[in-house]
Amino acid sequence: NQASVVANQLIPIQTALTLVMMRSEVVTPVGIPAEDIPRLVSMQVNRAVPLGTTLMPDMVKGYA
Rank of each mutant, 00 (worst) to 15 (best):
N1M: 14
N1P: 15
Q2F: 14
A3L: 10
S4E: 01
S4A: 03
V6I: 14
V6Y: 00
V6Q: 03
A7E: 01
N8R: 09
Q9L: 10
Q9K: 15
Q9R: 14
L10R: 10
L10Q: 11
P12V: 05
P12R: 09
P12C: 06
P12S: 07
I13S: 13
I13R: 09
Q14V: 05
A16H: 15
A16D: 08
A16Y: 12
L17M: 13
L17V: 03
T18P: 02
T18C: 05
T18G: 04
L19D: 06
L19H: 15
V20P: 15
V20I: 14
V20Q: 13
M22P: 00
S24M: 07
S24W: 06
E25T: 06
E25W: 05
V26R: 05
V26N: 11
V27F: 03
T28F: 11
T28N: 12
T28Y: 11
P29I: 06
P29G: 04
G31E: 01
G31L: 01
G31A: 03
G31W: 04
I32W: 03
P33R: 09
P33T: 11
A34E: 09
A34Y: 07
A34M: 06
E35A: 10
E35P: 06
I37R: 06
I37Q: 04
P38E: 11
P38S: 14
R39H: 10
R39A: 07
R39E: 07
L40N: 00
V41W: 00
V41G: 01
V41K: 03
V41F: 05
S42I: 04
M43P: 00
M43I: 04
Q44I: 11
Q44R: 12
V45A: 04
V45E: 02
V45R: 00
N46M: 13
R47A: 10
R47M: 11
V49P: 03
P50V: 07
P50T: 10
P50A: 11
P50W: 05
L51D: 14
L51E: 14
G52P: 02
G52M: 04
G52V: 03
G52D: 08
T53Q: 12
T54G: 02
T54R: 00
T54Y: 02
T54D: 02
T54W: 03
L55R: 00
L55Y: 02
M56S: 06
P57I: 05
D58R: 06
M59P: 01
M59W: 12
V60M: 05
V60T: 02
V60F: 05
V60K: 03
K61A: 14
K61D: 14
G62A: 12
G62Y: 08
Y63G: 03
Y63P: 03
A64P: 15
A64N: 11
A64Q: 14
